[in-house]
């Protein structure tokens, strides 16, 4: 923390401006991350040189494949298909899971009845749900997205149920006295209180969902990163497998940095910053 005049700082905080905007403070973490990743790449490159084999390509070869796939447009087509499925499954899982979780957290009797169902679905392996969905509903997009969502829903339910149990009744009573409409109650009373739980479910959700989407694509779709990995597995092309994997990890990282973190910062702007 750099030294600043006291009055200036409180004003800045009141206006919602972070007091920690000194360039050195923001550059250091970014520099650390870059150096850390470069170190990993170097290690990888050394290891690939020590054991030269087509099954263990170095970073240079993977980069060449990445450029080739990007130039042909294949990379973006398959990334886009996977990203679309991740987004759809995420939306379905978050909405359905939140509604069920909030209901179970609010009504104890319903919770007692449905809790065994939640535990059952939590423990069904993802692969079983995917295979059954394809058998029952056919090899189509709806079955693929539905199977991924069903895998994720119990996790969201468990998190959101905790959130609903932690709701502060005094806010609901205030809203009742001042006759808030149903929409205002959801927007100003319910969602802000559930925000930390929504954020937790989202975070763990996106990571889990994209891994399951790859399996779904591998088993029953004709495009997407999972399909490509399956294809290159049969061709034994490890460089291409790594290229697609790293490309998608990079996409998820960009989403985290440019979407998830700013949204979270905006949602928690009212919290008192640690002094």
């Amino acid at each position: 923390m750099t030294a600043r005049e006291g009055g200036d700082r409180t004003l800045g905080e009141a206006a919602g401006i972070s007091g920690r905007s000194a360039p050195a403070a923001t550059l250091m973490p970014a520099l650390t991350v870059t150096v850390s990743l470069l170190g990993l790449g170097l290690l990888w490159s050394l290891a690939a040189n020590a054991w030269p084999s087509p099954a263990f390509p170095g970073p240079g070869q993977v980069w060449q494949v990445l450029l080739r796939e990007a130039a042909s447009g294949d990379l973006f087509y398959h990334l886009g298909a996977t990203l679309g499925r991740v987004a759809a499954a995420y939306l379905v899982a978050m909405i359905a899971g939140s509604v069920i979780g909030i209901l179970l957290g609010s009504y104890r009797r319903a919770d007692r009845f449905f809790n065994p169902w939640v535990i059952l679905f939590l423990n069904i392996p993802a692969l079983v749900i995917i295979v059954l969905a394809y058998i029952w509903f056919g090899l189509n997009e709806a079955a693929a997205i539905g199977a991924v969502a069903v895998n994720k829903i119990p996790n969201v339910v468990v998190t959101m149920r905790e959130g609903a149990r932690a709701l502060d009744p005094s806010y609901a009573e205030m809203a009742a006295v001042y006759r808030f409409g149903p929409l205002d109650r959801v927007r100003h009373i319910l969602l802000p209180q559930l925000q930390p739980y929504l954020a937790a479910a989202s975070r763990s959700g996106i990571a889990l969902i994209w891994k399951i989407v790859l399996v779904v694509e591998l088993l029953g779709r004709s495009n997407g990163v999972g399909f490509q990995i399956h294809l290159y597995f049969q061709l034994f092309d490890v460089a291409a497998i790594l290229a697609y994997t790293l490309a998608f990890v990079a996409v998820m990282l960009v989403i985290e940095l440019l979407l998830v973190q700013p949204v979270e910062r905006h949602a928690t702007r009212w919290r008192r910053r640690p002094a």
Partner: peptide
């Protein structure tokens, strides 16, 4: 025909500004 209450605790919504808290009611 409206009622208003001042509770033992202020019960302001922490995620809304003072003015938003007043206007929401």
């Amino acid at each position: 025909n409206r009622i208003a209450a001042v509770f033992q605790e202020p019960t302001l919504l922490p995620w809304r500004t003072v003015e938003q808290n007043v206007r929401l009611a």
